[in-house]
Design a binder for these strands. Structure first.
Lengths: 253, 253
DNA sequence: CGATGGTTTGACTTACCTCAAGAACAGTGG
DNA sequence: CCACTGTTCTTGAGGTAAGTCAAACCATCG
């Protein structure tokens, strides 16, 4: 898997298809991959796009992790999302025609650029793709609503529990352990995202650790009692679809 | 404008086109209106769809107002949005295939149902429509991010200021006064949406009134010093696009 | 190695919630 | 039109979760 220059068809990665709910057949995936542009890898701290940049493409994360955030007039930032491999960035820019947020690599990351005009064109040709694209955006709306709920109604402990389980699920979906993982972002990014002070975040981790619910050493997290976290996350996390829980003897790692 | 039965082409309302950013030509709007289904008007408290209902259509509000909300396991509700004439409901259901929230009329409301399969089909045939549809969903994501920011970083006063200005703008877009309007929802719906206690909402209105920033009599609101509200909303409300502000000698009413 | 920025910890403050009691309001039926 | 009833709204008193401030600690990195 040689990492070539900044451009060129990205034929070895059908990564984009990972971002989309299943249902596209192989031929379609091939045509998709043809329009992908590979970018040179980003290093920790590198900016993928800035707020106000013209919107030309969406981006699929191949490896690493990024955060997106807006910057308010007084310079403070608000983290709007974390983006892991197999996830998509930039869909919120379609409407304005420019990026309403900034995207920055949390660690060395590899990105596929998907020029949007081509994607739209292809979606017209492939009904399935159109459907998947709409589904993808809808999912983001839906997840934002869950997050709104968390911020509006849940206390600090519940918010952290929800977030940890969310990450756990996302790691698991990539075939990684659901109970042992490395959070690529800083505590202050986490706290910022959850609408809390960094100090509160720190105290929460300590409390969770004292309860024996998890072990955290820097960015390395081990969930020891996912069931307790799920009880906390409780109400709001219940999904209509029978998503498997982590509780009980975990199959992970 | 005779209100017919529950079905039939809704040719007098090109309302759906209102929901979409401008840019569709007349012929397209006509074809769109052909697939619209008119629903019998909803009365205050009527449910448009429930959480978990199968997703078959999205809905455009013609008149009145609705709220959408999720219900957590313990029965408490979280308002996820208010929907005014010219706005769309149900886009968050595309991904799951069922509605993740419940929609209820806040007052007597008239709704157009837009069967989603037909809409997708039409979007395939009309590239412009496809683009507008994507743009519409993107806008919702973008607005949710703004709301996330508000809930995470702003205090109670700022949240209310932001919300009031938001409504003001939405009324203005419909050609109504930006400074005198009637909020169709209860104080507790407002507070719920903003992640506050109803009591706090009540105190906020009093405080704003004491400051002379607005006059409120029940659901009737008069903004007297939009500039002060804008100062409060401040940082987060600044949009890159030069959206006209309300401050200065208002042109409204 | 010291410099820099993230993290932890403690002491203190405060914005908002909770609880509880009235007041205003909206239906509903006489 | 007026009582009657159930909501929604308002107001006050008091408690608490989380923020702020400040200092110590720790990792990373030139």
């Amino acid at each position: 898997m040689q990492l070539a220059g900044s451009k060129g068809a990205c034929s070895d990665c059908s990564l984009f298809s990972l971002c989309l709910p299943k249902g596209l057949d192989d031929e379609h995936v091939r045509r998709l991959d043809e329009i992908l542009q590979r970018q040179r890898p980003l290093r920790r701290g590198d900016v993928l796009f800035r707020e106000g940049d013209g919107f030309r493409a969406v981006y699929a994360v191949r490896a690493g992790a990024l955060k997106t955030y807006t910057i308010s007039r007084d310079g403070e930032e608000q983290v709007t999302g974390f983006h892991m491999p197999g996830e998509m960035i930039g869909l919120d820019a379609v409407s304005l025609g420019e990026h309403p947020c900034e995207a920055r690599a949390l660690e060395t990351s590899s990105i596929c650029e998907i020029p949007f005009p081509e994607l739209e064109e292809l979606a017209r040709a492939i009904p399935d793709l159109q459907r998947q694209l709409l589904r993808l955006m809808s999912k983001e709306i839906f997840q934002d609503h869950e997050m709104l709920h968390a911020l509006a109604r849940r206390n600090a402990e519940e918010r952290l529990a929800i977030l940890l389980l969310n990450f756990s699920e996302r790691f698991a979906r990539r075939g990684l352990s659901a109970t042992r993982f490395r959070l690529p972002m800083s505590r202050s990014d986490l706290s910022n995202y959850l609408g809390l002070a960094p100090e509160t975040m720190s105290r929460l981790f300590r409390r969770f650790q004292e309860q024996g619910w998890l072990h955290s050493r820097g960015k390395e997290i081990t969930l020891k009692e996912p069931a307790s976290l799920e009880r906390l996350a409780g109400h709001c996390q219940e999904r209509p679809c029978g998503r498997p829980t982590l509780s009980g003897p975990s199959s992970a790692d």
